[in-house]
Amino acid sequence: MSQRNFKIWRGDADGGEFKDYSVECGEGMVVLDAIHRIQTEHSGDLAVRWNCKAGKCGSCSMEIDGKPKLSCMTRLSDYQPEKTVTVQPIKAFPIIRDLVSDVSWNYEQNKRIHPFQPDESSSEKGLVMHQKDVDRVQEFRKCIECFLCQDVCHVLRDHEKHDEFVGPKFMIRLAGLEMHPADTADRIASIREDFGSGLCNITRCCTDVCPEHIVITDNAIIPLKERVVDRYYDPVAWLLGKLFGGRKKKPVDAIEPTKTIRV
C-alpha cells in the first residue's frame, strides 16, 4: 500500500475546477478503484459512471492524464508512483456533473440508423451464414459503446459537427449492417448524405483509443467510403455490380428521430 495523489475535476454544466485528493492504493488497483476509495473516504457525492469493472460495458470512460480511457482497465502501476494522476470527464459531450457527461446524443444517432432488415431466405434452422462471412461483422459488434472513439474524433471534438457526422461509433454500426450477409437494405446513399462519411479524414485517432481493438478506420470507415465512391463516382462499375452481382438491396434513408430516450 502507498499513498497516491489525484487531481479530479469537480463541477457541473456551470463550471468547475480540479480538486486534490490523496488515498491509499494497493497492488493491482485501477483508477476506478481509487475513485471509489475517494468516494468512501473523502467525498461521497463524487459523480462517476461505472458498471462491470471488467472492460465489458463501456460505462466508465474518462480522460486520465489527458488520454481517453476506461478507468476500470487503467492500472495505477502504469503511472509513476510519485506523480499526481489527473482525471477529468470525456470532453466531446456536455458535462452533467464531475466525471459524468451527457452522452444522450449518441443514443439519438443510433435511432436514426435503419435497423437490420433480413432477407426471407432463412431456413427452419435460422439464417445460413458462414463464419468467414461474419468475422468482420463480429469485429464491429464487439463495440461496448464507451464512446471513446466519439470523444477523440476531430470532427466532433474540435469542429463540433455533430449535425453533419455521426461519428466513428456509428460508422462501425453502419458497416456492421452494410456487411451483414443477410441484410437487404441499401444504406450507401444514406451513409454519405445523412451520416456524413465524407467528413472523416482518416487520422485513425478513433482506432487508437478503442479498448476492444476494433480497427475502426481501416476495416469500417475506409470500406464504407470506397462503397460510396463506387456508387457516386464509378456508376458503370456499380451498375454492373447491380446487374450481375449478388443480392438486390433496397435503398433506405435515415430515420427522423423522435425524442424518446432521456438521459
Binding site: 435497423p115 437490420f116 433480413p118 432463412s122 435460422g126 445460413v128 463464419q131 449492417l177 451483414h180
Partner: peptide
Amino acid sequence: EVKLLEQWGAVFDRTPEGLIG
C-alpha cells in the same frame, strides 16, 4: 427465441454448415 434474435440482427458464431454454433 434464439432464432428470433438472429432475425433481429444477432450474429452468433457458426457451425461448419453455417448454422448457429
